[in-house]
Design a binder for these strands. Structure first.
Lengths: 233, 233
DNA sequence: GTCAAAAACTGATAAAACTCATATTTTCCG
DNA sequence: CGGAAAATATGAGTTTTATCAGTTTTTGAC
């Protein structure tokens, strides 16, 4: 069964997205201009260096936004989940994408063309205000990441990354939290080498904080992760 | 002689600041609500953890925006110069300051109260659009910093930091570029230890890329710094 | 200029993290 | 279900960077 494109007016993120303050007729127009797409694990939603043609609303799945170094090393800047908006920074700044968005799972995304997006932002002050707040929040988050990368050792950053995955992707009530993620991707979040991540994960396993089955990591004791991650805060 | 508070309508940054698209009557109002202040080297303009009460427009001098770790280590997030705007992120996001702004030099700053700032943003779409672009640019810059911190070794980041200082603070035509900056501050930009910075600076000196007299660093060969900083781009 | 404090510098050593090599397990395709 | 490919896991050795201790130079007040 193919995933169906939802109508914007009945989208489950209608009241929590960037467009939560839109009028019905705006949602109607949005719906007509949008374009629904599915991506398999590993597929590229947009690519570093390309010109943005619109924004993306994640309808389902998991997305990493990351930048590739010339040595093939990747750094993940952001993790996105259903309900999140992607690619708006480049569009507003009128620059090429500085990072790529890649599906981590089977992912569904609505594309909204730049013209429609700009029109909405121009015409509805509430949308532009929300967008501004979104940018401000994203800036704060990125500054936090920068600080932590500069000041915390790998062990603490790894604990933090696991908590980020949990807070981002845990479905309500589903405890304990489990996620399937490659050690490579995890190391690209933390900003370290794959082997280093594996070593600290082993340590966390010995301490009963997590268990793993293949690439699946289950967080048994999030409180301990909080303690580790904020050891020197 | 005390520095004089400039009138907003004749401010030298009238046409390049966030308020470049304001009407005369808006500048008039801005001028009446603003508050001019001077800060000596080391003085705090706003402090991490406090609630923002407005925004700051740098009229002259140099400012570092930085965050303090519990271990006393500092990370500099941003360098500001005359014409720059400070403290807007927290105000928009409605959060406490997550970093402090500290004068690196004798610095003059105009404070604009939140009520006045919000009024302007609400009433003038051009101001809010410019503000949005400013946020988008700041987000892009911070993402760049994050990537470089994660992927480049100290030597390259130091070269980059020196180029940042040059591009930020070089007065037109004044070559070669010189700046007085403590090794401590420089290490807080790079995200490394003071001694490590000193060692690489010594190396740069041996290679004839820079010279130093006390805390004054003169960049003799910026091209070489560019090469070093982008060694693996 | 003089002197004390602060900052820059240097060296030795230690710690953290990376790389490379290799073994083991998991995944998944036929 | 079997087997190859991919990913996880572990070990050894190296590099990078941090820390600590000490010396020299610079700075700024008197």
């Amino acid at each position: 069964m193919k995933p169906q494109a939802p109508h914007c007016q009945s989208c489950q993120f209608k009241d929590s997205s960037l467009f939560k303050q839109c009028h019905l007729h705006e949602l109607e127009e949005l719906n007509e201009s949008k374009c629904f797409n599915s991506y398999k694990k590993g597929q590229v939603i947009f690519h570093e260096g390309n010109r943005p043609l619109g924004i993306f609303c994640v309808y389902g799945g998991k997305v990493k936004v990351s930048r590739m170094g010339s040595d093939g090393k990747e750094q993940i800047i952001r993790l996105a989940k259903k309900g999140d908006t992607l690619g708006y920074r480049s569009l507003i700044d009128n620059t090429k994408y500085t990072a790529s968005a890649i599906a981590l799972d089977e992912t569904e995304v609505c594309f909204i063309p730049a013209t429609e997006f700009n029109k909405l932002v121009d015409e509805n002050v509430k949308v532009s205000t929300d967008l501004m707040k979104m940018l401000a929040r994203a800036l704060g988050d990125t500054q936090d990441k920068l600080i932590h990368l500069a000041m915390k050792p790998v062990r603490e950053r790894l604990a933090e990354a696991l908590l980020l995955l949990k807070s981002t992707y845990q479905e309500e009530g589903k405890t304990p939290f489990s996620i399937s993620i490659s050690r490579e991707d995890l190391s690209s979040i933390v900003g370290t080498a794959k082997e280093t991540v594996i070593r600290f994960l082993s340590e966390f396993k010995e301490d009963g904080i997590i268990t793993t089955h293949g690439s699946e990591i289950t967080i048994l004791n999030p409180e301990k992760l909080v303690k580790i991650s904020s050891m020197y805060d």
